[in-house]
Computed example of a mutant assay.
Amino acid sequence: MRYSAVALRQEAAHPSGPVIVASSAGCLAQIATGAQTLAIWRRSAPEGQSEWLDGLPASQLPEGQFVTAPGGATAPLQRLADGVALPPSPQRDWLIGDIAMLVDCFAQIARCAAVNVRLEAIDHDACWRFHRDYVGLRLNATYRGPGTQWLPPERADAALRGQRRYRGPLNELPRFSVGLFKGVVQAGNDAIVHRSPPVARHGLTRLFLCLDAETCDD
């Protein structure tokens, strides 16, 4: 599942409101020039990928942070996988290749010469507070466990005030789907309010990817 820069420009979604949801990668490029503040590329993984990831001990989930130029993510990702003794397999190859592809896509859309890559195994309530990101663009994807939770724009203020007391509508990025968020730098207070899903009480470990041209937090 690899997408060229040309394909990203050619594939287009038809947005309605501040959020674009599409089954093609084109929606990610569209958000950079449109008025929308969140693009969701709904997608699935190859057969067996979910089972492979779910079956790994948490200690074998690759994690780390590095900065790379477009086209340069594969080698550091392989080192992260080698560092946790993740055995060679088609599933490992797909994971590394998919992340490297997303790094290249993000660099093209954000027009940045270097991408900050964070791949993290999260077994705690990481950034549980509802918040907006103080960046230009940020890409999130979850390979294992629940995805980033985000709010309908009309519920943002209530969630920011209530935090843990908030009980209103809440959306969640599907597993393997890609979310490209406009942060406060580009969207101001129209930036989508979101948070990390609470996982500590459920005994889950997420495998979470964040791509940014700046410092990254979920």
Rank of each mutant, 00 (worst) to 15 (best):
A35R: 15
Y166C: 05
A5P: 00
I192S: 03
D54S: 05
G203D: 10
G72K: 13
A159G: 08
G145M: 05
L77M: 10
R118V: 03
Q78I: 01
A35I: 00
R164M: 07
I20F: 01
T215P: 00
R43H: 06
G168E: 10
I109K: 04
L137D: 02
S177E: 02
C210R: 13
M101T: 14
V6G: 02
I20H: 06
F181M: 00
F130Y: 15
S59L: 11
R164E: 13
S50Y: 07
Q10V: 02
V103A: 05
G71C: 05
R111M: 07
L204E: 14
V135R: 02
L151M: 07
P15H: 10
R175C: 09
A85H: 12
C27N: 09
D82V: 00
E214M: 10
R111L: 03
Q36D: 07
Q60N: 13
A35C: 03
C216R: 15
V178I: 15
L137G: 02
Q149R: 15
A32T: 08
L95G: 07
L28C: 06
R132M: 08
T37D: 11
W41Y: 14
S16Q: 15
A22N: 08
G97S: 13
L173S: 00
A107E: 04
I20E: 06
D190K: 15
A29C: 09
P57M: 02
S196M: 07
V185A: 15
L102C: 01
E172L: 01
C210P: 01
G71M: 05
P15W: 11
S50I: 04
A58N: 13
L102R: 14
S50E: 12
Q163S: 07
H14G: 00
S16R: 15
A29W: 06
L8M: 12
D104W: 07
Y134L: 09
L53D: 10
Q60T: 02
G48L: 07
R155T: 04
Q163G: 02
V84S: 06
R161C: 01
G188P: 07
I192E: 03
A12Q: 15
W94Q: 10
P15I: 09
A191G: 10
I192T: 14
P146M: 01
N189E: 15
P46E: 05
G34D: 15
W52R: 11
R138Y: 05
G168Q: 12
S24A: 11
G147P: 04
T68E: 12
L207Q: 08
T215W: 01
A39K: 09
H131E: 12
Q108P: 00
A32G: 06
H131V: 03
A100M: 04
D93K: 09
L77G: 09
G179S: 06
Y143M: 03
I40L: 15
E214T: 13
I96W: 00
W41S: 03
R42T: 06
